Simulated assay, not measured.
Amino acid sequence: MARVRMAGQGDAGTLTQMRCAFLEELGQALPDGFADHLRAWVEAAFADGRLLCWMAEQDGKILGCAAVNPYAHLPSAGYPAGVGWYLLNVYVKPAHRRGGVAGSLLTAIGSAAREQGIDMLSLHSTEPAWKMYERYGFRPSMDAMSMALATG
């Protein structure tokens, strides 16, 4: 069984590798230098609390990871404390999929969020993963929209 732990600065390289693998599986062509840029971002985000990450490991090998970006939200009925976590980069290495690794990560993150009084966990997902997220309490939201501002 995989053990889930919080990641730290020493895991920035592993998280970078897993994020790049995740993006490439989604069909993104990563430009030259992207991994170096990402690693610098991850290191800075770990340092200032913009990124929290959990790693699933077994026998000293990382099987998967999941991260959250904490965010402030104007308090409302759904956000009484005014704090949410955006879940991203839930990634399990292909050889370890369908073995409960993602579920262990989601359980650990849900527990941590409850302990810290987080109002909401939100995410974007590929359609094949919807049923898994629904098993852990996530529900579809039809009120979200986005506007891409980045060029290139």
Results as ranks from 00 to 15, higher is better:
residue 70 P to V: 14
residue 27 G to C: 05
residue 42 V to E: 01
residue 34 F to W: 15
residue 31 P to D: 13
residue 33 G to V: 07
residue 60 G to E: 11
residue 22 F to W: 10
residue 55 M to P: 00
residue 76 S to T: 13
residue 72 A to M: 08
residue 64 G to D: 04
residue 31 P to H: 12
residue 43 E to K: 03
residue 46 F to E: 01
residue 37 H to P: 00
residue 16 T to K: 00
residue 66 A to I: 11
residue 36 D to F: 06
residue 44 A to Q: 13
residue 30 L to I: 04
residue 35 A to V: 05
residue 47 A to C: 08
residue 48 D to N: 09
residue 67 A to H: 02
residue 72 A to H: 08
residue 61 K to H: 13
residue 16 T to W: 00
residue 19 R to E: 01
residue 61 K to N: 08
residue 48 D to K: 04
residue 49 G to W: 00
residue 29 A to Q: 15
residue 41 W to N: 09
residue 34 F to C: 05
residue 28 Q to Y: 15
residue 55 M to N: 03
residue 66 A to L: 12
residue 36 D to I: 07
residue 62 I to P: 02
residue 30 L to Q: 06
residue 75 P to G: 07
residue 18 M to A: 04
residue 30 L to G: 05
residue 47 A to N: 07
residue 30 L to C: 05
residue 30 L to D: 05
residue 18 M to W: 02
residue 65 C to Q: 14
residue 36 D to C: 06
residue 30 L to R: 04
residue 43 E to H: 03
residue 39 R to L: 10
residue 36 D to G: 11
residue 61 K to D: 11
residue 61 K to C: 10
residue 23 L to V: 05
residue 23 L to M: 14
residue 53 C to H: 02
residue 62 I to T: 13
residue 20 C to S: 05
residue 42 V to I: 15
residue 20 C to I: 04
residue 60 G to A: 07
residue 23 L to S: 03
residue 34 F to Q: 08
residue 48 D to P: 01
residue 41 W to G: 02
residue 50 R to F: 01
residue 50 R to I: 01
residue 24 E to M: 04
residue 31 P to L: 09
residue 44 A to E: 12
residue 47 A to Q: 11
residue 74 L to C: 12
residue 65 C to A: 13
residue 70 P to F: 02
residue 62 I to F: 06
residue 56 A to F: 13
residue 55 M to E: 05
residue 55 M to I: 15
residue 52 L to A: 06
residue 35 A to E: 14
residue 74 L to I: 12
residue 36 D to S: 11
residue 25 E to N: 03
residue 59 D to E: 15
residue 60 G to P: 04
residue 36 D to H: 09
residue 48 D to A: 02
residue 15 L to Q: 03
residue 46 F to R: 01
residue 32 D to F: 12
residue 34 F to E: 08
residue 45 A to C: 09
residue 40 A to T: 14
residue 21 A to R: 09
residue 51 L to C: 09
residue 54 W to L: 06
residue 36 D to A: 14
residue 74 L to Y: 14
residue 56 A to H: 12
residue 52 L to K: 06
residue 56 A to P: 08
residue 68 V to F: 00
residue 62 I to S: 10
residue 67 A to T: 11
residue 57 E to V: 03
residue 65 C to H: 07
residue 25 E to P: 02
residue 35 A to K: 08
residue 49 G to A: 07
residue 33 G to H: 08
residue 36 D to R: 11
residue 37 H to E: 09
residue 40 A to M: 12
residue 40 A to Y: 14
residue 48 D to F: 01
residue 28 Q to G: 01
residue 32 D to I: 10
residue 63 L to R: 13
residue 33 G to Y: 07
residue 66 A to T: 12
residue 28 Q to D: 08
residue 26 L to M: 12
residue 75 P to L: 11
residue 74 L to K: 13
residue 44 A to M: 06
residue 29 A to E: 15
residue 44 A to H: 10
residue 56 A to L: 09
residue 44 A to C: 03
residue 66 A to M: 14
residue 52 L to Q: 06
residue 20 C to L: 03
